[in-house]
Lab assay of single mutants.
Amino acid sequence: MAAGGDHGSPDSYRSPLASRYASPEMCFVFSDRYKFRTWRQLWLWLAEAEQTLGLPITDEQIQEMKSNLENIDFKMAAEEEKRLRHDVMAHVHTFGHCCPKAAGIIHLGATSCYVGDNTDLIILRNALDLLLPKLARVISRLADFAKERASLPTLGFTHFQPAQLTTVGKRCCLWIQDLCMDLQNLKRVRDDLRFRGVKGTTGTQASFLQLFEGDDHKVEQLDKMVTEKAGFKRAFIITGQTYTRKVDIEVLSVLASLGASVHKICTDIRLLANLKEMEEPFEKQQIGSSAMPYKRNPMRSERCCSLARHLMTLVMDPLQTASVQWFERTLDDSANRRICLAEAFLTADTILNTLQNISEGLVVYPKVIERRIRQELPFMATENIIMAMVKAGGSRQDCHEKIRVLSQQAASVVKQEGGDNDLIERIQVDAYFSPIHSQLDHLLDPSSFTGRASQQVQRFLEEEVYPLLKPYESVMKVKAELCL
């Protein structure tokens, strides 16, 4: 049975990233139509530049190519590739079939990587351009969430054990800070992308030097003109047959890092959902379990974690691919890159769409948070109580021993009897502590235990987050809708 299948058929496997999760716009960027249309555009740009620099290419040939950029006979191309065992030459023939007058000058002087690699770089750039505003929107939604809850005390956790208090907004800023680093890295790697350009079979530009009869300047002009037509500021000066596969490492490393950030955020949300302090959106008709109707599973956060793990592992592909590119190139890269580049971007696209949807509907339960604080705060307040007693004339050592005994009794009630923490009640009825009984409410005010959390939130948002989001103001209103 021949390899390949009808990918629109229910009898043929289709990647869930495309069929179930990723956005239509990201799927289109990695589609065959987008790819092969870009090949034709690159052939047109090459012909236009070659004509401008004096090669015998007519206006009629150029116009014929322009008129057929979208006229792609995919069936013919597939048949040609089956016959020739070469995808680029299959599309040269297919393009030439609908451009008979231009057929002889299509791909003039070029090698397969002229269309293959340059198209990949265009796709990487455009895919990054799709991700950047999506990530900015996630940051914006979380920034709104953090600002609104900047002063809401909550129990902090280290080692997932109760620690000092923080605020809900401050905790959210930990998430935002990681995503801001990801946004900066995505922008950097996007701006650092260079075009492969017009380089020939081993990167020496020998074929173009021959076409222009040894004119170095025209060869350099050709490279520059096509690079500018493709919208790049610069091209690699040095290439082998391909652009260095280190570029793929750079791009997928940034995406993998984004995956790590999203995994951490969504894990926190899942843990908070278990504590009943916070939940992701839950639709009115949504079913959490087929057997347990009360369940409210954090399905979206779980999906993000599941896909983020996949995204983090994909960076190993370009690392290994770059390491086995012998001399000017081997074909070890080809099949692998067809999979890992598309999957990385479709996965990143999915987790950003999902995280935006989550961040637009996060639900906080202040009463649950308050109750958990009441359970733990008495123990945390013991040092403040000791200091207040010393100020009232008591002995630190005597007070410490009193607190120690009462704390152990209260802990026994919590752990052995399943009761509430009654340390404060014990202190309130103990005559030894009568000098500070009137101060206990103040000493137990949760806001006095959150330090500068709310001020940190305000400063972080104003100095770091809002300036970073400013270039994306025009796209901030787009909502994230999930079908599944």
Rank of each mutant, 00 (worst) to 15 (best):
G54R: 05
T204V: 09
A381G: 15
I351D: 08
F212M: 07
S207M: 02
K391M: 15
C340V: 15
P298N: 15
M225Q: 00
L314P: 09
K391S: 08
K199R: 09
A308P: 02
T154L: 05
W39K: 05
S395T: 07
S112W: 03
Q221W: 08
K224P: 06
D317T: 03
A110S: 07
N71E: 05
R194A: 02
D117Q: 03
G214M: 13
N68E: 11
A411W: 11
R85K: 13
D11C: 02
R303V: 01
T202K: 01
I358G: 04
V198L: 02
P56E: 02
T242M: 06
V465R: 15
R196V: 04
D120G: 07
W175E: 13
E25F: 13
R396I: 04
S290P: 05
F74V: 09
A235M: 07
S407L: 15
Q51E: 05
L155F: 06
Y294E: 10
D349N: 08
L135A: 09
Q210F: 03
L131K: 08
Q221E: 13
P153I: 00
H442I: 08
Q285G: 11
N297H: 12
S434V: 09
K233P: 15
S306A: 05
Q241A: 03
P318C: 11
D6R: 10
K391L: 00
L355S: 15
H97W: 05
L132F: 09
G156C: 05
Q164V: 10
D144H: 07
R245H: 00
K224Q: 00
C173I: 05
P24H: 01
A146D: 00
E48S: 11
T158D: 02
C180Y: 14
A206R: 06
I237K: 13
S395C: 06
Q456W: 05
L352F: 02
G418P: 01
E50C: 06
M380N: 05
A49T: 09
L155A: 04
R194E: 01
C399E: 13
K82F: 09
A22D: 10
F157L: 07
V465C: 11
R338K: 13
R85G: 08
W326C: 01
F282S: 13
L121N: 09
L355F: 02
V198E: 05
Q455M: 00
S253C: 03
S454C: 12
E60S: 09
I436H: 09
A291C: 04
M76V: 10
F345W: 09
Q286L: 08
D11I: 13
E148Y: 09
F157H: 02
V92F: 08
D191Y: 10
T94H: 00
A206V: 09
T111Y: 08
S31D: 09
A235K: 09
W39F: 09
E401S: 15
G54E: 03
V315R: 11
P298K: 14
V429W: 04
D332A: 06
F195V: 03
S448F: 14
A90G: 09
R196Y: 00
A291Q: 07
M76L: 11
L135T: 09
T354S: 11
T244G: 08
V138E: 06
C173Q: 01
S412F: 14
S207L: 04
D11H: 11
T244S: 10
F36M: 01
D178V: 11
E417V: 14
F212W: 03
P298C: 13
T350G: 11
Q63H: 14
L174I: 05
Y114G: 02
S301D: 02
E277L: 06
D144S: 06
L132T: 08
H97T: 02
Q456C: 10
Q286W: 11
E60I: 08
Q61L: 08
R20H: 05
E64M: 13
V168G: 05
L84R: 11
D87G: 04
G116K: 05
W43D: 07
L44C: 03
V405R: 02
P378E: 13
L319D: 15
N185A: 12
R188P: 00
V324A: 03
D144K: 05
L255E: 13
V324L: 06
N421F: 03
P10N: 09
K101N: 02
A230C: 12
K264P: 08
T202L: 03
L319G: 10
M312L: 13
D445K: 08
L84C: 07
L46S: 07
Q51A: 03
D317N: 03
I249W: 14
A411C: 05
T38K: 15
R20W: 13
T244I: 02
L311S: 11
F282A: 14
L174H: 00
S454D: 06
L135C: 00
G231C: 04
L443H: 00
S257G: 05
I105E: 04
K276L: 08
L183W: 04
I424D: 10
V405Q: 15
K246I: 07
C27E: 02
W175C: 05
R83T: 09
L46G: 12
N71V: 02
P467N: 14
E283K: 05
P16V: 06
A410D: 12
Q439Y: 14
A480W: 13
L258G: 06
G116S: 09
E220L: 10
I176E: 05
E277I: 00
C340F: 11
K295V: 09
E279R: 01
T58I: 04
F327S: 03
E25R: 15
R245G: 09
H86G: 09
A335K: 09
A342S: 04
S454G: 10
S323R: 13
A480D: 03
L406H: 12
I106S: 03
V457C: 14
Q184C: 07
E250D: 03
E473G: 00
A78F: 00
N336Y: 01
G5H: 10
I105P: 15
S67L: 12
V390N: 08
T267C: 01
E250G: 10
E370Y: 02
V198Q: 00
L307N: 12
L222H: 02
C99G: 04
Q63V: 05
Q320S: 02
T267P: 12
A127N: 00
P10E: 14
E417L: 14
C305N: 15
K82H: 10
V247R: 14
T111D: 00
Y243I: 14
M312K: 02
A90L: 01
E220N: 15
R20K: 11
S448M: 12
G54T: 08
T350I: 09
R171Y: 00
M76G: 06
I139Y: 10
T202M: 11
L131P: 07
W43L: 09
